[in-house]
């Protein structure tokens, strides 16, 4: 059963499952503690500064693969002792992000920023700032309340930046939390855009003073046990599944409701009687097939006709076949008439005008009456009229009787 349809097979709003987007993906680290002579220090006890221990960097032990492994071990990525480091995660496609969470092996940074890209890493925009000193580090006020006019803007918060716990601390960001329109997310294009990303970057901008940590400067590194990113494929409410593409590639929306495109962001060919819309819980906004009476497989959408019809139908059939014409292929082409013994969808609409008795191949679309030459009669102009008789001339087939 596909959740995109109810028990009566009526279309309904649907979403792919929330999934762990970082799981199994490679995170690119700008700096990694990857061998001698580097060394880093950490704390065994989250509350006891005296539990400090130090160890040398090893080639494979601290790589960024450890950020997204899920083997249950607390394996950590460690940066080189430095003031700045970044972690970048490519999601492969546009996703809707519900949370980003980092579990630290080191003390949490004094200042950390999360950025997102919507164009596969070409440009980046701030997603969230965390800092004990928002003004000084990011030139932003510490924010506790997000008003509607800024719900598509990154804010800086002071929470989650405390020195303790010294290990195991969490930094979590939920892009919708505290945003006024979050309860009506499905009706808020601004927030739908706000949570959309193709790539994420975490920038560790400043650590707490090494002196406070009881370390020398060259011993202080960022250490992260886990990077979790919760989200789902952006399918605009038209897919409940988003399986991995061929060869385990980029996930693809399994588009329903007669939609198509990487994000179910357009209507399938021939389903253009109404404009495409994102689904909402109130209305699935299913794409509707054009009505071409089975005489065409192609159509286009006209907003003008859609508005004129009271927003009911805007499809215009293209390339009507079987000698039909009109917006819905509902008329016969010139020279052809409908055989009313067959339904309008029948392919059997053929011209019945007599090749000699009629002046041409044109007939009345409603009655089927062909235009007859002088002295010729009948629906198809196939007989001489009263007082006329057949001649030998194909040009004047009936002549007045003498």
């Amino acid at each position: 059963h596909d959740p995109c349809y109810n028990a009566n097979q009526h279309p309904q709003f649907c979403l792919p499952d929330l999934s762990e987007l970082a799981s199994g993906r490679l995170v690119e680290a700008s700096s990694t503690c990857s061998g001698p002579p580097g060394r880093f220090c950490a704390f065994q006890d989250s509350a006891n500064p005296g539990s400090k221990f130090c160890q040398g960097c090893q080639e494979h032990t601290h790589r960024s693969e450890h950020l997204t492994d899920s083997d249950g071990d607390t394996t950590c990525w460690w940066s080189k002792p430095t003031a700045n480091a970044t972690l970048t995660l490519a999601l492969g496609r546009r996703m809707e992000i519900l949370y980003v969470a980092l579990r630290f092996c080191s003390p949490r940074p004094e200042s950390l920023a999360i950025y997102k890209s919507m164009d596969y890493g070409r440009s980046w925009m701030p997603f969230q700032f965390f800092s004990s000193r928002c003004w000084r580090r990011y030139h932003l006020p510490p924010t506790t309340t997000i008003v509607k006019s800024m719900e598509h803007e990154a804010v800086c918060i002071e929470a989650q930046t405390a020195l303790k716990p010294l290990t195991g601390g969490l930094v979590a960001f939920m892009p919708l939390a505290g945003r006024p329109s979050a309860q009506r997310f499905e009706y808020s294009p601004i927030l739908q855009d706000w949570v959309t990303a193709t790539d994420l970057r975490v920038s560790f901008d400043r650590m707490h003073s090494a002196r406070i940590l009881g370390m020398r400067r060259k011993e202080a590194s960022y250490g992260v046990a886990e990077l979790q990113v919760g989200g789902r494929c952006k399918c605009n409410g038209h897919a409940s599944r988003c399986p991995a593409g061929k060869d385990g590639g980029v996930p693809q929306c399994d588009c329903q409701h007669n939609t198509a495109g990487p994000e179910c962001d357009t209507c399938k060919t021939f389903y253009w009687d109404r404009p495409w819309q994102r689904a909402t819980p109130k209305d699935a906004h299913e794409c509707v097939a054009c009505n071409c009476h089975r005489h065409s497989h192609r159509c286009r959408f006209s907003m003008e006709l859609f508005e004129l019809s009271g927003r009911q139908s805007g499809g215009i059939c293209l390339n009507c076949r079987h000698h039909t014409a009109g917006r819905h292929c509902q008329y016969c082409s010139p020279g052809f008439k409908r055989d009313f013994s067959h339904p309008i969808t029948s392919h059997r609409v053929s011209c019945q005008c007599h090749p000699i008795g009629a002046t041409g191949a044109f007939c009345n679309q409603t009655t089927g009456q062909c235009q007859c030459k002088n002295g010729v009669t009948g629906l198809t102009c196939n007989r001489c009229a009263q007082g006329f008789q057949q001649s030998r001339s194909a040009h004047i087939p009936c002549i007045r009787k003498l």
């Binding site: 090749p355 000699i356 009948g378 001489c384 030998r392 001339s393 194909a394 040009h395 087939p397």
Partner: peptide
Amino acid sequence: DVMPTLDMALFDWTDYEDLRPDM
């Protein structure tokens, strides 16, 4: 009275070959 259908065989097609249907 129903008049008879035009008899294509009666026509002289000499000058109207292009009009002549396949019979």
